[in-house]
């Protein structure tokens, strides 16, 4: 299964970036093979508005079925939900450890945003 993780760097040793829409990178990783691709999120990071929405669409485009991040706002959550991407918030640590933890099967998925929208 492919999952997306917000990351401060572009490798599996990087720390998770708690921000979703404005994360530095979004890493899409195969949970079985650990093959991954790191997407530079600079365009969304500097977006005037709607960063979370655009990042959510990008994750859906890359066939990730799950998003692991720190905080997810209401617009992003709505988009991910429509795209059928499950969201787990409040994640921390190195990307590789986050993936390992996910593979152990203890991840709790969110049923809503855990952050207010930005105005």
């Amino acid at each position: 299964m492919k999952i997306a993780i917000t990351s401060q760097g572009d490798t599996l040793d990087s720390e998770l970036d708690p921000r979703f829409g404005r994360a530095a990178y979004i890493i899409v990783v195969d949970t079985q093979t650990l093959e991954f691709e790191a997407f530079d999120n600079a365009t969304n990071k500097n977006a005037f508005k709607g960063a979370g929405i655009q990042a959510a669409a990008m994750i859906s485009d890359n066939d990730a079925q799950v998003l692991l991040t720190g905080f997810c706002g209401p617009n992003a959550f709505k988009t991910l939900e429509a795209a059928g991407v499950k969201v787990a918030n409040d994640q921390t640590g190195k990307i590789i450890d986050v993936v390992k933890k996910f593979n152990q099967g203890n991840t709790v998925f969110a049923d809503g945003a855990n952050k207010d929208g930005h105005w």
Binding site: F48, G50, I53, Q54, A56, A57, S60, T79, A83
Partner: peptide
């Protein structure tokens, strides 16, 4: 410019 549209699959 305002990210108001999300095109999904």
């Amino acid at each position: 410019r305002f990210g108001a549209i999300a095109v999904l699959k």
